[in-house]
Design a protein around this nucleic acid. Structure first.
Lengths: 180, 180
DNA sequence: GGCGACTTTGAGTGATCATTCTAATTTGAT
DNA sequence: ATCAAATTAGAATGATCACTCAAAGTCGCC
């Protein structure tokens, strides 16, 4: 991939993969379908990616990266709002992210490992914000509350994708009354 | 399926299917794997089920049925507690239920339809309980709050399955401070 | 505009998928 | 014990899967 056309093809492949994964899930997404959607033939795919797994892992990694700005100084409220923004503004990417977050990448070890690392980072990020707001709270309780908050947020985000009329932002903010 | 042995085989097939779906997801579960786990050969499978889809739909329908006693008189607190019991006591079935609840049965139309119907019933059930507790609440707000509560519960349930040390019951109860 | 590196083509490979079929065996009511 | 019906065995089928490869075409530096 040293020429301009190669990079364009790569982009089209990743977009096609993202859309298909969001619509049908990880397992049902085939090379054939990706290539058709990207307007190429299989040979071109394998010129740019080692395997189907590599393309999917790239899409998943991009989705994880798109979730958060990782601002270490952000308040809980800002973090929750940023997550709501992500889900509402990048529905397709959010769908990929949630599918993996929730199934944990049941079979693929690469995806699973990446998502676990991401989850730990999120707990740290939200934990730091909660500790700042509530310096008196015991460390163990901080972690449990953050885990509960993140889990509830993910559940609501999924519902938001199924039902766009759901007022995700309000309920996400309401969760903070428990979480903090 | 008129003989005793046939019914036993059927049960073993459904258990194998349930376990495999819980462990690997809907799409990665193959007839071959089901038959190996059930200790039979493919011919026996097709003597009892029309297709792989029928076996999986049966498992999913059983999981949906296992979720709730559908007690029309139950309070919100009782409903939430019953759901926590379900998740903690029937982990494998709960995993199947959540995978379908969350992915909505992305491809299979039979599963998708069944889960949508179930979701509507749950909203009615929880809505009735919330209206009883808060007769003054506007109808539209009741539905939105119930949807938010159910979504958050599902998210937390998923997290509970990934991390058994998570205190699902406490956080589920805490949600009621928002939901009601 | 020549040339080596990159990209595309598209038929081909072997593995695995769900499903079918026939013959052999087992069941249980009589 | 007999026998029709149910169950099981297991090879075979055709579709589809991820992936390979050699030849033809394109790109962009010189």
């Amino acid at each position: 991939m040293r020429y301009r056309v190669g990079l364009e093809t790569r982009t089209r492949i990743l977009e096609a993969t993202r859309d298909l994964v969001a619509a049908q899930g990880l397992e049902k997404t085939t090379i054939k379908a990706i290539c058709e959607k990207a307007g190429i033939l299989v040979g071109s795919f394998y010129n740019l990616f080692e395997s189907k797994e590599e393309a999917i892992l790239t899409v998943v990694a991009d989705a994880i990266r798109a979730v958060g700005p990782e601002d270490e100084e952000a308040t809980l409220h800002e973090l929750v709002d940023a997550y709501v923004d992500f889900v509402e503004k990048s529905e397709t990417t959010a769908r990929v992210y949630l599918m993996v977050a929730v199934s944990g990448g049941l079979t693929d070890e690469g995806i699973r490992a990446r998502m676990l690392r991401h989850h730990e980072r999120r707990i740290e990020l939200f934990g730091r914000a909660l500790r700042t707001a509530r310096p008196d709270m015991p460390e163990e309780e901080v972690r449990q509350r953050v885990e509960g908050l993140l889990a509830a947020l993910n559940g609501m985000a999924f519902h938001r994708l199924l039902d766009p009329s759901f007022d995700f932002r309000s309920y996400a903010r309401a969760l903070l009354q428990i979480g903090a």
